[in-house]
Amino acid sequence: MNRREDLAAEQAALLRALLAGGEVPPGFVPDRVAGEVRALRNKRRKVVAYLAPELADRLGDRFAELFDAYAIVHPREVGTGARDDLAAFADWLVERGHLPRARRWSLGRSPGWSPLRGRRSR
């Protein structure tokens, strides 16, 4: 391998550690990588809570714990958006009996929906 390929392999290993539960690559401090993993998971959780505050409210104190359990096993897929992540999390909750299958939690796709208002704009 040349230097460019080596660097690409090192970057891929770091991304696996940060996003998919992979081992921390040599040369990185495991505690610091773990801190970044927590920060990225927190950010992902906050985005889902922002997109579906009623889901976060419904789960209450269990929201963070349940989302983290989901996120550890389901890293974000390449090419998926936050609303896809929200829908997959809601499906995961339904499959485990934490939510009834009453609705699809995929906000923001209807025409006129505003993320600032959370409802259709006039």
Rank of each mutant, 00 (worst) to 15 (best):
T80S: 05
Y50D: 08
V33K: 01
A82L: 04
V37L: 12
Y70M: 06
F63S: 09
D85H: 15
R62L: 07
K46T: 11
P53N: 05
A52H: 00
V78Y: 03
V37N: 03
L93G: 12
D84Q: 14
R32H: 01
A12D: 04
A102K: 13
P111W: 10
K43A: 15
T80K: 06
V48T: 06
R3Q: 15
R62H: 03
A90C: 00
P53F: 09
D31E: 12
L7D: 06
P100K: 14
M1Q: 15
D57V: 02
T80V: 03
R119C: 10
V73T: 12
A12V: 02
P111S: 02
A64K: 02
P26H: 11
E23N: 05
Y70I: 02
A8W: 04
L107D: 13
L86D: 04
E5Y: 10
V29F: 15
L99G: 06
P111H: 04
R117T: 15
R103A: 10
G35P: 10
P53W: 10
F63L: 10
W105T: 06
D57K: 03
V78P: 06
K43H: 15
A39M: 13
A69N: 01
R3G: 13
G60P: 14
S114K: 09
P100Y: 09
V78K: 12
G79K: 11
P26E: 13
A20W: 07
L59Y: 08
L86I: 11
P25R: 02
H98S: 03
F28C: 13
E77N: 00
L66G: 14
G112Y: 02
E54A: 13
W105P: 01
L40K: 04
F67I: 00
H74M: 08
A8P: 02
W92H: 11
A39W: 05
G27Q: 05
D91G: 12
N2P: 04
R45T: 09
A49V: 00
E54T: 13
S114A: 06
F63M: 05
R83W: 10
L116S: 14
W105H: 01
R4N: 08
E23W: 07
R104Y: 01
R83N: 13
H74F: 06
L55K: 05
A34Y: 02
T80H: 01
S114T: 09
P75L: 01
V24M: 04
E77M: 11
T80D: 02
E23H: 03
L14F: 11
N42G: 14
W105Y: 09
R117L: 15
E36D: 00
A49F: 01
E77H: 12
G60K: 13
F63N: 09
G112M: 05
P115F: 15
H98D: 12
R119G: 10
V33P: 01
V48F: 05
L51Q: 05
F89G: 14
L59R: 12
V24A: 06
W113P: 01
G22R: 07
P111I: 02
L59N: 07
R119M: 07
R83H: 07
L86R: 04
G79Q: 01
